[in-house]
Simulated assay, not measured.
Amino acid sequence: MHMPYDTLPRIAQDTALFLDFDGTLVELAARPEAVVIPPTLTSTLAALYGQLGGALALVSGRRLSDLDAFLAPLQLPAAVEHGGQRRNAEGLLISSPATDLRAALQAAEGLLQRHPALQLERKNLALSLHYRHAPDLEGLCLQVMGEAVASSPGLQLMHGKCVVDLKPTGVSKGTAIAAFMDEAPFAGRVPVFAGDDVTDEDGFEQVLRMGGHAIKVGPGPTLAKHRCDSVAQLAQWLLSARAPSRESGPERRHA
C-alpha cells in the first residue's frame, strides 16, 4: 500500500542522517520550552543511531542542553545554535569563538520591557527573539535587532518562523553538516537532511552539493527536492526505517 512518505529517500546503511528538531521532529510550540516529545521519538532515534553506526546527528538552533534534556537519556552528536557549537561523534564539544552579544541583549531586553508578549531565548553564542504571541511586532523586532547586529561585529541575523535569530557569522547548519561529513562515522556516506524552516536552507544547499538529499517539512519555498507534509509524516518515515531488532543507542554516552 502506498504511504505518504514513500516518495522520501530511503534511509540505507550508507546514509548519514541529519535532523532539525523544532518543526521537524517535534511540533512547534507556543513557547520553546513547551514542546511535546512524541512517545516513540527517543527510541526511534536511538535505534536509527545504532543501525547507522552512529552516523545520525541533530542540527538545530537550540542549545545543546535543551536537546539533551528533551531526549534524555539519549545524547546524540549534534550541531546547535545554528552551527555555533557542535558535539561530534566522540563527544567532543567544538565551539566558534565567543561573540559580543551585549548590544543585541540590550536591544532585545528593551523590546521585552515594552512588549511583554515577546520572549528572549539566550544561548551560549547566540540569542533568539520570539514574537509568536505578538506577530504584529515582526517588523519592529527585525528593525531593532538588525540595528543591533549592525553595531556588533561577528553577529549575523536570521529570520525564522516567528523568531529573529542572532548567531556568529561564518557558521550555519550547512557548515556544521560539512564538518560532520569530514569525520567518522559520517565520512563517505550519503547525507540526508530534514528541516522545516528558512534557517535550514543552508543545510539543504550543503547536502545537495554533496550529492545527498534534502527534505522540507511543511509548506514554503525551498531548495529541497523532497517534501514531507508534517512532523507526523516525517516520524512515520523514520519509524519505517527502524529495524525492530536494533534497540541500542548512545544513552548517556557523552558527558
Rank of each mutant, 00 (worst) to 15 (best):
P4I: 05
D6H: 15
L8H: 01
R10Q: 15
Q13S: 15
F21L: 03
T24K: 06
I37S: 09
T40W: 07
S43N: 03
G53Y: 01
L56C: 06
L58D: 00
D68T: 03
A72F: 08
L74Y: 02
Q75E: 06
A78V: 03
E81C: 04
H82Q: 11
H82L: 02
G83I: 04
N88C: 14
A89W: 05
E90W: 01
L93C: 09
S96G: 10
A98M: 03
A107I: 08
L111R: 00
L112C: 10
A117T: 04
N124S: 14
N124C: 06
L125W: 04
A126L: 02
L127E: 00
P135K: 07
M145C: 00
V149I: 14
K167N: 00
P168C: 07
G170T: 08
A176C: 10
I177S: 07
D182Q: 15
D182E: 15
P185Y: 13
F186G: 06
V192R: 06
G195H: 04
D196M: 07
D197M: 07
V198E: 04
T199D: 02
G203V: 12
R209N: 08
V217T: 07
H226P: 05
A232T: 14
A235N: 05
L238S: 10
A243N: 15
P244K: 05
P244T: 01
